[in-house]
Design a protein around this nucleic acid. Structure first.
Lengths: 293, 293
DNA sequence: GTTTTGTCCTTTATCGTCAAAAAACATTAA
DNA sequence: TTAATGTTTTTTGACGATAAAGGACAAAAC
């Protein structure tokens, strides 16, 4: 079979939103840029919109003919790439009782279960292997190492090493470096989130990721920057599963972030180190508390 | 097409050596264990040896009938796995003038050039991406980041961080931990190599890798241990290319290793840190000296 | 002259297939 | 009863085919 049409479908849905908003659509190259797809895909989208009577498409004019309704949108689950479907399904397995250390992973079985080809599985497993949760034996299957306490400890150790160094590098950045402005914006977002914490505490993890990635980017080291992918993966999936005390945890973390940001702005290296360590310590504890044993 | 028969061929060659040595072969399971292959492969090997008149195979008895000659061995290049062929070919490209930063990698073209299927290339590139030398754009090709001075600096930074920590962990190991014995053996090998440095200086890099991997293993952290793969890859390929002053460099490194080992044995943390830093400093300089600019 | 569109070619994503290699099971010899 | 051999079943490794998505280039519109 050929590739799934998820790029097209997802872009189509986003394009419907644009249509609602503006009543017409811009030029093909511009549309491609806003949607993040090629002109070929843009033209497929326009073709369908024309066919469905949503727009009158004639060369440069793409005028809306009617309001899109719910039926015009592609179902959400068809807009995911195969890779992300595999990822989700695999993580669910990994975090379930099936994810016992030592267990074997059968590529064909996994492919059947998820409903994709074996090469998608193979490629996913290779990509995923860098997270240190699975390991390959030559000419044999993958072995699950499991989401264990030991894993969490090893992860936290590296994270602390990297983040302390990145934070130190951040302080050393020239004051006119764009990262300082980015930090200001993120600080403001923290205040906003704290103000509306009651209903928006779920938005924390996205802000958290952006904050830490900003810090890590100051290291100017691709290995440090890339390592954050491991952390992000863990947080993303693990916290979907464990929601106990989520609001309180997030509120604490937000405050720690603000102290951390203040330390960075103060330019005092010792202050930065203290604030960074404090936050990483509670992050580690939170993670450990949610690991099976 | 099906998979290449490299496992069989390589095991066959090694089995011929065993046959020369002992005049007969042990039981199938034992043979499988020594050769590191399954019984299925062992039986394929025995079948062929029987056909070729090398052994008289009847149930448990596998008696040698004649001495194997050069023709009995499979050609060496047929014993490489497709993955290693791809790796070598790709690294040659990367270290050649073609490996310019910013260049695109075309999967199909690469597959044709090397003479393998596209999925072998894809899987290799995914595996290789963790080395930080290439990067993927969604639905588009891989981009070469190049083997640059910047890369070497980033690599050295992480290496120093990890090795200092591992060395500190090594010193803290209980004196009856098997790692200490392994260190003694490696120390002895260093003395042997220095004694015969004139003709054996090429053997250094293998010993070097074993030494550093031993140190790293004391960290008990999979991310640190796995990171050594990146370093090993760089050293393996880069030094195949740059052989200037190789003998002298290796001799210096051997002496630094011995000082480093002595420091570890002394149990003095400050001593260890000093010896470790000194060695890593010259390793970094050597690497930087051999990078284009 | 620049941007947009129309057309065509290239490259990637995904799958099914088939032999190699491993693993499981059954049988026989010691 | 244990450990080997003989036989069958699973699972991985590698490939080619095909449609989706990207990209290039000429013609047309502003």
């Amino acid at each position: 079979m050929a590739k799934s049409r998820n790029v097209y479908k997802q872009a189509y849905n986003r394009c419907l939103a644009l249509l609602c908003e503006h009543g017409e659509l811009p030029s093909e190259p511009e549309l491609g840029a806003t949607l993040g797809v090629s002109r070929t895909t843009v033209r497929s989208i326009l073709s369908r919109m024309d066919e469905q009577g949503l727009i009158a498409w004639d060369k440069r004019s793409k005028r809306a003919l009617r309001e899109p309704n719910a039926d015009d949108y592609f179902p959400e689950d068809e807009t995911d790439s195969v890779a992300s479907i595999v990822e989700r399904a695999f993580m669910r397995r990994l975090l379930s009782p099936e994810g016992t250390p030592g267990g074997m992973i059968n590529e064909l079985e996994l492919a059947r279960e998820i409903g994709v080809g074996t090469s998608s599985i193979r490629e996913f497993l290779i990509r995923f292997s860098r997270f240190g949760l699975i390991e390959k034996r030559r000419n044999s299957s993958w072995v699950l190492k499991g989401f264990t306490r030991q894993f969490a400890l090893e992860l936290a150790e590296i994270r602390e090493m990297f983040e302390l160094r990145s934070a130190a590098a951040f302080v050393a950045l020239a004051r006119d470096h764009p990262a300082w402005q980015a930090l200001d914006r993120i600080e403001a977002e923290h205040h906003e989130l704290i103000a509306g914490i009651a209903e928006r505490y779920m938005d924390f993890s996205e802000l958290d990721e952006r904050f830490h990635r900003l810090i890590h980017s100051a290291s100017h080291n691709r290995f440090i920057v890339d390592f954050y992918d491991v952390i992000a993966m863990v947080f993303h999936y693990h916290y979907q599963w464990n929601k106990t005390e989520q609001r309180k945890r997030n509120e604490t973390a937000l405050k720690e972030h603000l102290a951390y940001i203040a330390a960075l702005k103060s330019g005092q290296r010792a202050e930065v180190e203290r604030a960074c360590r404090r936050h990483l310590k509670s992050a580690r504890e939170t993670l450990l508390a949610s690991v099976p044993v």
